[in-house]
Nucleic acid binder design. Structure first.
Lengths: 192, 192
DNA sequence: ATGCTAACTTACCAATCGGTAAGTGGTCAA
DNA sequence: TTGACCACTTACCGATTGGTAAGTTAGCAT
């Protein structure tokens, strides 16, 4: 075959979906191989261990999120954040894969002290927050708190979606999603 | 031995800690057995399958959370909620086990359509919300949204703790926790 | 043509997984 | 005393896990 790393991103894409659905321990190399249409050892050829493949997946996730943030740049920082999180919410509702992966990674981050690939992304967000009218007079802790609150709100909504759907039905949940959007606006308005 | 189910809660307690840390797939019966100081088959004697043990763990969790909610009853519903979530936050910071278990269960709830044991607890919370001055004129969707926002805020803070600690250090994180407490107050004040 | 390397495959491995079968030993009612 | 029953144990099972070893096949520079 060609000496190109063309297949690698495809394997990472498959792994992203699986790891996001079932977590690190719930996903096996054979599953990933079957999904990718290759043998298990094809994956081990590119990624020396399952752990390495997982880290590559998280790194790709971090780059994607950073790009999404940059993509909706706006001169007014408060508007930038408002736009970004609204779009993030919209995308995550259509496809929760990435946010699920974030949550799984957070829950796993206890017992393996892996370097957290999302740090540049978070730092970028904190810088933008610091440039807003409301944010520049906040302490670092309060900026982090604002961020955790925004992310927590959105992520929790998304990963609760299946459970809430089963409990309270489709119609109520659609309205809840609208309520979430206005909560995002309200949270963003705190920085104006 | 005695024909008593005395050991069962102890096994569930061990399972709670393990499942909360590593999730369903990351936890094996042999690990649970070793932690409990008995053989793997002792567990299978009480709980027919690993899945059954997991469900028992979640049921116990649901009862515990309901009890905690009832325990801090207050005649004024808005104050009740404010007190409850403040205490929940305090406890979860000291021992994140229960909230981690909730998050794991939420992430798992996609592909096995298990009945969600936390529904009575959530319903109780929604009733209390409906009795507040601010909550009784809300739609069901808005009440759910308020709840998801409050829970999301707290839970996300807690499970991010390890990662944030590694990224931003101890001092900043302690301040962030204080900021979370005032955010909880602010969120509770929306119902007054 | 030849040798090198990248991208795989088949074959295999020990370890561990959840779970079954068949006891063992103690307690208690009859 | 007996026998049922409960809380467990040892022994074992086939399936699957992550990972190794040793090819095989194809493109490409020399």
């Amino acid at each position: 075959m060609k000496p190109s790393g063309d297949a690698k991103p495809a394997y990472i894409a498959v792994a992203t979906r699986r790891f996001a659905m079932d977590g690190f321990y719930g996903t096996s190399l054979s599953h990933l191989a079957k999904d990718s249409g290759v043998s298990k050892q094809a994956l081990l050829h590119f990624f020396k261990t399952k752990e390495a493949l997982y880290e590559a997946t998280l790194t790709a996730l971090a780059e994607r999120m950073m790009q999404d943030l940059i993509a909706c740049h706006h001169a007014e920082p408060a508007q930038w954040l408002s736009d970004y999180f609204m779009i993030l919410c919209q995308n995550a509702c259509a496809d929760p894969t990435d946010l699920r992966l974030v949550m799984h990674a957070l829950l796993d981050s206890d017992h393996n002290a892996r370097k957290w690939p999302l740090k540049p992304y978070l730092d970028k967000l904190l810088v933008i927050i610091a440039h807003t009218n409301g944010g520049h007079k906040m302490s670092t802790a309060k900026r982090i708190n604002w961020l955790l609150q925004m992310n927590g709100m959105i992520n929790y909504h998304i990963i609760s979606h299946t459970a809430m759907l089963g409990m309270y039905g489709e119609q109520v949940l659609a309205d809840t999603f609208n309520a979430l959007r206005s909560s995002i606006s309200a949270q963003a308005r705190l920085l104006e």
